[in-house]
Design a protein around this nucleic acid. Structure first.
Length: 568
RNA sequence: CGGAGUGUAGUUCAGAUGGUAGAACACACGGUUCGGGACCGUGAGGUCGUGGGUUCAAGUCCCGCCACUCCGACCA
């Protein structure tokens, strides 16, 4: 490729509001441009990288016997309605109508489509298992796009869906995909952590994220130093050590308490530890039920766990007005004790197991400036539901007594167990088994965000001057700079070398621009970040200056020597 | 959804108190330079996000809308 013909050029300044390194560099180096928020043009350089990433994913998926196909981007909305997912995913699902008023969803993920195409064949048990995948544009109506390619509203995703006759068979595929993904990210130069996580609106019972460690990432997870445990904050569990269980229960006492409304105010007023306080967080779900989450004072409520325990799809915090008028309590003084007698509408008391690690707890008394002392579970209140609704944090102990470390990372891929989540809800999603009976098929799905992976690579591979592309995905291998190209002799030899390397199958970007200063050409080469830089000038005297992007020094070599060091 | 902020040339920004739209970079042409983002000259490029209002006069003041960015989505 002649640089002089390359569409998209480097610029000195990145947009003022770009904060992510990958965003700035991909912009400055001419790989991407924004269309509207969260929708990007991939310029020729960017698209070359994207294609290379896709090809690596494709090779590894094919190696794992998955089969590539393609589904329409517009999904009939009726399909999404079969399992009511248009509602649960409604907040980020986009819909569109054609001229006949036929409604479509702009696909954000394609489980329904793949179930639909599979059931068209009325499969037999003999046809299983199989794994189908595609690369296609996915639409997510994100509340907020962020960090260049890191969180966007439109992107290419590799999504795969596997179909099985039972859980056993699926389990093998799940493990195979874990290995395949690790191989893929390995080849892309990314070290990934496999993190247990929440299925969210995709559904199913368990799943894992592939996370690249990075401060800029949005995925919060907890891990142990030895890596034996890694789980997303949404699902991470930890040990809730007993506090004062040996203490004797004292009688419940109501006392005046002129204090502020924070947990800290309670600690100061009563001169008692934070952990002895009961934290009461009132939520309202999508059915307008009140949900009072109860937890030991030094812990925080994990909303994802709370949703799972209560079956709520959507939670929001109750307003002060609701606490006063509907629950007949007082912000900052909520208490499970006697609260059911106050509320007319439905209220569900959800207790965290940590409540059982304390006796004689204290907290509000559902009235302004009134507190209870010596509150005891079972005696003074009884949760309707009890379980784990606590948020794991840095420094807590894992269930195996190891320190948990909180980290952030970029979620570049994930694998989901779907089980019967779709096949039981959608009609005809079955196969005919050996015994002649129809049974729902068992599913899994597996996704990789291509653009986000690209951004994650840049986050990992850059320095103060620009990008350092790993060779496997660099848009070109060689950045060939001709200085003094106005000299016909140099022009002739550069042109010759350009074809020489091309003819040897190397991808080469030839900076043939006349009248551009050396400094500018070097700057552009560093910014674009191809793995090898070659220079020809008056000074190189028949040889070529060779330098690897990350290296400090260069050597003079012959074309043959360069070929040898590059084609390893 | 809440809070904060920003919309002026392709980009980064400047345009106190209202009075004929500016710079730098980038771009085009000419010339000089030529191993770490050189320089001189000339030139082209803007419905000041959008709609309304106040005013003799609005980029500037007021109101609505739109777009975009950042923070938060949590302790009752």
């Amino acid at each position: 490729m002649l640089y002089s013909h390359l569409f998209g050029k480097t610029v000195k300044k990145a947009p003022a509001d770009a904060t992510a390194a990958s965003h700035k560099l991909l912009y400055q180096a001419g790989f991407i441009r924004e269309s509207t928020a969260g929708r990007y043009f991939y310029l020729p350089l960017g698209q070359r990288v994207q294609m290379k990433i896709m090809n690596i994913i494709r090779e590894e998926m094919d190696r794992a016997n998955a089969q590539e196909m393609l589904t329409p981007v517009l999904h009939p909305l009726s399909l999404w309605k079969e399992n009511n997912r248009h509602r649960s995913a409604g907040y980020e699902l986009m819909t569109i109508k054609d001229r006949r008023d036929f409604q479509f969803a702009l696909g954000g993920t394609a489980e329904e489509m793949f179930v639909d195409v599979v059931r068209k064949f009325r499969p037999s048990y003999k046809d299983f298992p199989f794994n189908l995948y595609q690369f296609s544009i996915k639409f997510r109506d994100e509340l907020r796009a962020r960090g260049g390619l890191l969180r966007v509203r439109e992107f290419i995703m590799k999504d795969a869906y596997s179909f099985h006759i039972d859980a056993n068979d699926f389990q093998k595929e799940y493990e195979k995909m874990k290995k395949t993904y690790t191989r893929i990210f390995d080849r892309l130069g990314l070290a990934t952590v496999i993190v247990e996580s929440d299925n969210g609106y995709i559904g199913g019972e368990y799943c894992h994220e592939f996370v690249v460690d990075a401060e800029i990432g949005e995925s919060k997870y907890l891990t142990t130093a030895d890596g034996s445990y890694a789980a997303h904050e949404d699902v991470a569990v930890f040990k809730k050590e007993p506090k004062n269980n040996e203490e004797k229960m004292k009688p419940l006492q109501k006392i005046p308490a002129k204090r502020g409304t924070t947990m800290e105010d309670g600690v100061k007023f009563h001169q008692l530890p934070l952990w002895q306080q009961i934290k009461d967080v009132l939520f309202v779900d999508e059915k307008d039920r009140f949900i009072l989450a109860l937890i030991r004072g030094d812990y925080e409520v994990n909303e994802v766990k709370l949703k799972h325990l209560t079956g709520a799809l959507d939670l929001r915090h109750a307003t002060d007005e609701e606490i006063r008028n509907k629950v007949k309590s007082e912000p900052g003084f909520l208490s499970p004790v006697g609260i059911k007698d106050r509320v007319q509408s439905e209220i569900i008391l959800v207790g965290d197991q940590s409540l059982r690690t304390v006796v004689n707890a204290y907290g509000g008394a559902n009235q302004l400036h009134q507190d209870f002392l010596n509150i005891n579970i079972d005696r003074d209140y009884k949760p309707d539901l009890e379980g784990d609704i606590a948020l794991a944090k840095n420094g807590y102990l894992s269930t195996t007594e190891k320190q948990l470390i909180a980290k952030r990372g970029i979620e570049v891929g994930n694998i989901f167990q779907l089980g019967y989540h779709y096949s039981k809800k959608m009609h005809d999603a079955f196969f005919v088994d050996r015994d002649g009976k129809t049974k729902p098929f068992y599913m899994g799905c597996y996704g990789i965000g291509v653009g986000r992976t690209l951004a994650a690579i840049v986050e990992k591979y850059h320095d103060g001057h620009g990008i350092l592309w790993p060779r496997a995905i660099a848009p070109f291998q060689l950045h060939f700079i001709a200085l003094n190209i106005d000299d016909p002799e140099i022009q002739r030899s550069s042109d010759y070398l350009y074809s020489y390397f091309m003819n040897h199958g190397l991808e080469i970007l030839y900076d043939d621009r006349p009248g551009v200063s050396p400094g500018e050409k070097f700057g552009d080469a560093d910014l674009i970040g191809l793995p090898y830089r070659l220079i020809v000038s008056k000074k190189t005297a028949g040889k070529i200056e060779y330098k690897e992007r990350a290296a400090k020094t260069s050597q003079l070599k012959t074309p043959e020597e360069i070929l040898k060091s590059i084609i390893r």
